[in-house]
Design a protein around this nucleic acid. Structure first.
Lengths: 246, 246
DNA sequence: CGACTGATTGATACGTCTCAAGGATAGTGG
DNA sequence: CCACTATCCTTGAGACGTATCAATCAGTCG
């Protein structure tokens, strides 16, 4: 139970940089304040630390005081809700470059390492201070939350309207959009089938059958359990039943 | 197709006030800036306008430029996503006092009047200006969005983990928590069965059957299609299977 | 009163879950 | 290096829950 299923590269710089906010924070108008921003940012980066977690290790639990905002540098993370009677819902998967844990004073979900993972941890106190004093940072946080909101809304449509095959197709499309693999190149799926199932409100067997069916229909190719090649994006989108328009 | 099913009271002050933000914006530290805030707020209120929509009328559509933030003064509103092939997902219902439309430059969903409805419309430009200059307002907007986020996450658990009866029970509990009816007093459900079904990812028949079952088990009493009395909150929570802990 | 809309109930079909049995793959230890 | 073992994935058969189709019921409005 030690090593990662999808082998964990020892030294890939991954998330392109370890700063909390990307250079362009969603708008160009920040350019003028870049100097001041850089200063604050270097403070933030100085206060940040790296953390490693092994596969299936818990990063934080729902209800814990939200002391840190995390950025995935390498590996992937699942955000889950656990119900009292033991059911589990995976809200989302966080991939390299993604931020999580920036809402509210207590974490609203549990974060677990899907693979061995390297994170950057930023103190919440610093983020809050920055957000309060710098409109650009505040704006960026709001943009992050908004994006999050849209993703959740879309997932509600998936869970509320779609059948099993449609859900799996939507999931693959979303992962492909985030990872942007070159056409014909395989898409990495670090999470296991059970994780997908708990994300899509299905059982592991139903996920398997849906994937097999898409494979039989030649919509996708499945070199191994953790990789998929999308042969026909158009067709895959059609499978979702119009829920994924783009 | 004109009058409301759950009779639309001609002059109930409803949302307790017509200001965009309540007096206490989620934190006490605002108190000091109250005077300045009041000034800004009065400007905002001056710029706001009232709007009326009839039952099933569209308030705005997904993709429309987000010119206004709305507050429900009377009646109720459903926020939906429509898929290309005609399926519909109701993301949430907005009741008196609730705000909607404050994320992003384009609306991410369609808003429709469930009943005849009276709204206050606030120009987005003003809100953005306030939010950029006043940290307290910014903070309040963030709180609103966060609350929204939590609600969506919870609903994902409902759709992903729960069966039909559990979903209906969760829905009733949530509505009761928002409306806080006195014990033994009926809870108003302005929306029809089809709206509930599209919210819960079920069919209208399944919603009916779940409600009937809860009625047979004496967990709820149903005076009419638009009212429910919760006889046993504890039992109702147990029905949800532990998804609604509080 | 009579027609309409929405809610409810019943019978059946379909899709997903459950339970069970192989099969593939990676890590372990001889 | 190879067999061993554990874990995960895949497939099948049958059970269960929800959707679908159809009919009835209840309330509202003309």
């Amino acid at each position: 139970m030690v090593m990662n299923a999808s082998k964990c590269q020892p030294e890939k710089p991954a998330g392109d940089n370890i700063t909390l906010f990307p250079v362009v924070a969603g708008a160009n108008r920040l350019r003028a304040k870049q100097a001041a921003l850089d200063n604050e940012m270097s403070q933030l980066q100085a206060a940040s630390s790296r953390r490693r977690f092994g596969r299936n290790e818990t990063i934080f639990s729902e209800g814990d005081p939200a002391g840190f905002v995390y950025k995935v540098l390498d590996g992937s993370v699942r955000l889950c809700k656990h119900t009292i009677d033991g059911r589990r819902q995976v809200l989302d998967f966080m991939m390299p470059g993604d931020l999580f844990g920036f809402v509210d004073r207590e974490y609203g979900f549990t974060a677990e390492a899907v693979t061995d993972v390297i994170l950057a941890a930023y103190p919440r106190s610093q983020i809050d201070r920055l957000s309060a004093t710098m409109p650009s940072v505040h704006r960026y946080v709001l943009d992050l939350v908004s994006e999050n909101l849209l993703a959740l809304q879309h997932h509600i449509v998936v869970l509320g309207c779609q059948g099993a095959k449609e859900r799996v197709a939507s999931f693959l499309l979303r992962q492909a959009e985030r990872a942007q693999p070159a056409p014909g190149q395989p898409l990495d799926l670090p999470m296991g089938r059970q994780d997908m199932a708990d994300h899509l409100g299905l059982t592991i067997e139903t996920v398997c059958r849906a994937i097999s069916e898409l494979r039989r229909e030649r919509v996708i190719t499945v070199p191994n359990a953790h990789q998929v090649v999308m042969n026909n994006m158009r067709l895959l989108r059609a499978v979702t039943g119009g829920a994924d328009a783009a």
